[in-house]
Design a protein around this nucleic acid. Structure first.
Lengths: 332, 332
DNA sequence: ATGAAAGCGCTAACAG
DNA sequence: CTGTTAGCGCTTTCAT
């Protein structure tokens, strides 16, 4: 038969509640009693039943992780697996478990969140990416269930989130390129409706301003997150003029830009990508890219959420993770 | 206050046990009663508490996933994320949840497995890779807890596992190369102590035999799973003789071989890799590689385990997932 | 076909 | 500091 708290109590000659207190490391148990209880546990090879504890405590010490719907990206972008690693590391440290699931679209994600919450499986939820007008976020806000988002949400006031400083990241990239003597620098961003694009564009603009470089709106373009789109947009830029450098907000876009440059540009054009995906070093030229530190993003997301669950009120509701430009041939 | 089975019972004018039976879809409940109960659930927005059910049922409908200790591989090899996707898909279909965690070494993995089992959190465990002399496998066998392994284990008799048919996969590759007229074909495998290497080597040997090609043991080599090792071994082969083709048991090895060939070989040598990693198409020449269908491996691993948990005795204890050669320049 | 009651294993007042 | 007792929310005999 499975060994329970009662068996331990019997062997240790104490009551079940005392054993329970020892498990919870309650300070008002005498060392002598603790010793006896631990001995009994040892002897019986007792292990607390987490399910029973969860039921009595109304807390599972489990977090639910919502992975975004299928995207090409999911497999080529190390972001996901790295973030999952960071989440796991912090959670483990704090004795939390992680559940994950994939969904095929936003509706399914919301459905799964409902399942997690209604069935009382998880104490908190981690969203791996924030979209515009995110249904997951609004649902979670509505029901008031604890959650954290990786990526600053649209209304960041009462939401826990972690993100990079996208303004600064791009500001630094542009400053770096300007420092290399480049004066005409183009910008190819993802959809301008996204916060992340806006922030990076601002960083770009400010850096040019500070350096006294003119901002040419014809060099500021919008692309989809794909190689083909980056290619087309870059081709279009080249038709207008050949800049000395181009910054992009995603490696895929940069890959396309690189290709267009190879085919159509007359002189060398420096290119910098974002996310430092696995393929970046394998482009030719090898692509310089900004590493966003996905593992840290995950780690601090878990931290924010768990701290909140454990009611550490003094903590901030967001955390900024530093980025790092990885220099390769493409920006030499 | 949270709504429980009792509240529903009150509204529906039945007993809690009846409500419970409706939840479990017990056949001996009259349709009329069912209707009443469903209505009451609806009205109260009732959702069963999974924790309480788990406690009473002694089953959590949750699977624990053990991700292997840190390896470079983890980020560049889409295997992991794909397998996780497959696992998630089947589990969701069957109403199972998945917990995951990362460990830093084999000991930590075993520790975590113990935690999963002792705390009664999971009904079954999925190991994402089988090593030689795997401590996780022997522990799980010792305690007799249900589990499944991706990758055929050393003693496959009483273990659930899924894998590719590594013999056939390599047999097909060699047959394909022979079909292109190549007569002298080399083999660079990972450690020969691994089952997977042995199987693939057998496939290689048999295919040559059947085609009436001679087996030159000097062309059969062992390498580590790294680009540098593949490079060195290939260089060594070239010192001996230039074969017309080389098969490898891993893309990393193939990458290195490709490099050595570019540097030192006088004529073209066809190369085929394994695992179809993300970087394969980005080599020059683009590397032909065998896709092992990681998502399917995950899917069927979950299937085997869940079927076993639900006591479908007639099922087999293993499942073979088909592979697929992805042809690219390197084998043209 | 349905209800009453005991119990899954642990926790948390309350009392002492 | 420790024991008693009543739950946490659901399931499952055992009756009827």
């Amino acid at each position: 038969m499975r060994v329970t708290i009662k068996d331990v109590a019997k062997i240790a000659h104490v009551s079940p509640s005392t054993v329970s207190r020892v498990i919870a490391d309650n300070p008002k148990i005498s060392d002598e009693t603790k010793r006896k209880v631990y001995l009994a546990m040892e002897e019986l090879n007792y292990h607390p039943n987490a399910i029973a504890r969860s039921l009595a405590n109304k807390s599972t010490k489990t977090l639910g992780l919502i992975l975004p719907n299928t995207s090409e990206d999911l497999f080529t972008n190390p972001f996901f697996i790295q973030a999952m690693r960071g989440i796991s590391v912090y959670s483990q440290k704090k004795g939390y478990y992680i559940m994950y699931n994939y969904s095929n679209n936003e509706e399914e994600e919301v459905e799964f969140i409902k399942k997690y919450i209604n069935s009382k499986w998880v104490d908190g939820i981690i969203l791996l990416t924030s979209r515009q007008n995110d249904k997951c976020i609004s649902y979670l806000n509505d029901v008031g269930h604890p959650f954290v988002v990786i990526g600053r949400p649209e209304e960041p006031q009462n939401v826990l989130w972690v993100d990079n400083d996208n303004f600064k990241a791009m500001y630094d990239v542009v400053t770096y390129l300007a420092g290399k003597g480049h004066k005409s620098i183009g910008f190819i961003g993802g959809p301008h409706s996204l916060n992340v694009t806006k922030d990076r564009l601002e960083g770009y603009r400010n850096a040019l301003n500070v350096r006294g470089l003119t901002i040419d709106n014809n060099l500021i373009r919008e692309a989809y997150f794909s190689e083909i789109s980056g290619y087309e947009v870059m081709k279009d830029i080249l038709n207008y003029k050949e800049p000395e450098a181009v910054v992009t907000t995603d490696d895929l876009i940069a890959f396309g830009a690189l290709k267009a440059i190879k085919e159509f540009a007359k002189k060398k054009i420096a290119v910098v990508g974002f996310n430092n995906t696995i393929l970046a070093p394998y482009q030719s030229p090898a692509l310089s890219s900004v590493d966003i530190n996905a593992e840290k993003l995950g780690y601090h997301a878990a931290q924010l959420l768990i701290d909140k669950l454990e009611d550490k009120k003094f903590t901030c509701n967001n955390f900024i993770v530093n980025t790092q430009l990885i220099e390769r041939e493409s920006s030499e």
